[in-house]
């Protein structure tokens, strides 16, 4: 059996700064592993978003560019249009992609940009200290929804994967989780598939990964893992939502 947790070559060998039990580290490994698998380290350009994953440039042994909060997908589109022979991906939190960057996200997908977005959905603003996110579940208490998220004033949690799958421009859309070995294996396959789509020039690929943020959920790592299973997955169902077999122009 293949080891999932061998340190991928394109991850720099330093410890992550993430809190104990945070899933960002696992998601980073999945991306790194896919880059290693396709041996594209030297032709990959990453775009970091603003959130707890902003320090991506410290971990990935590839070229990395920092984008203003929310604009990673537009920045990545710019990179790709200038260098179509490179593999370009963004790694964005839910605040970054589903709130401030939702317009860029939708239009990047709609243009069918041949890039990959890794969407790290932990249902909260991690870096700024636990405010409500567009993906915060109904009733969930955060520092700016002290009485629990209420749809009458805060709206409903947004299902990004479903939304982007409706767009003609998107080629591959999946939602995965990393809370247990079975889900992790599926996540690994999905991330790999997303990069494969880009390599084969099939168009826009998108993988939403459900992540735990034990710190801002006010939970232990184990409790947070359980919450992914019991509360997040029922609202954000896992699976491949869209997989185009042929590129648009064929």
């Amino acid at each position: 059996m293949e080891l999932v947790f061998k340190r991928p070559e394109c991850l720099i060998d330093i410890p992550f700064h993430f809190c104990p039990g945070c899933h960002h580290g696992i998601a980073h490994r999945l991306v790194a592993e896919a880059i290693d698998y396709f041996k594209i380290r030297e032709k990959t350009i990453g775009v970091a978003s603003v959130g707890c994953s902003v320090f991506m440039y410290d971990y990935f042994n590839v070229d990395v560019l920092e984008a203003p909060h929310g604009r990673a997908s537009a920045v990545a589109s710019g990179v790709k249009r200038a260098r179509k022979d490179r593999i370009v991906f963004t790694y964005q939190g839910d605040g970054d992609l589903a709130a401030i960057g939702i317009a860029e996200g939708i239009h990047t997908a709609n243009r069918g940009e041949n890039i990959t977005i890794i969407f790290a959905n932990n249902g909260i603003y991690g870096m700024t200290g636990g405010q409500m996110a567009p993906t915060t579940l109904l009733g969930q208490k955060t520092s700016t929804s002290p009485y629990g998220r209420d749809f009458t004033s805060d709206g409903y949690p947004i299902r990004m994967a479903e939304m982007l799958a409706t767009l003609e421009g998107s080629a591959f859309v999946a939602r995965v989780a990393v809370n247990n070995p079975a889900n992790l294996m599926k996540a690994k396959r999905a991330v790999r598939k997303a990069f494969q789509m880009q390599i084969e020039e099939m168009g826009f690929s998108f993988v939403e990964i459900l992540l735990a943020c034990p710190t801002n959920w006010g939970m232990t790592a184990l409790e947070a893992n359980r919450r992914v299973e019991e509360e997040m997955i029922p609202y954000f169902p896992l699976g491949i939502l869209k997989e185009r077999k042929m590129a648009d122009y064929l």
Binding site: T128, Q131, T144
Partner: peptide, 15 residues
């Protein structure tokens, strides 16, 4: 919209 170092303002007012 949240941003450090002013989050105390929205947090206080949301309450």
């Amino acid at each position: 919209y949240p941003i450090t170092p002013q989050n105390d303002i929205p947090e206080y007012l949301s309450k």
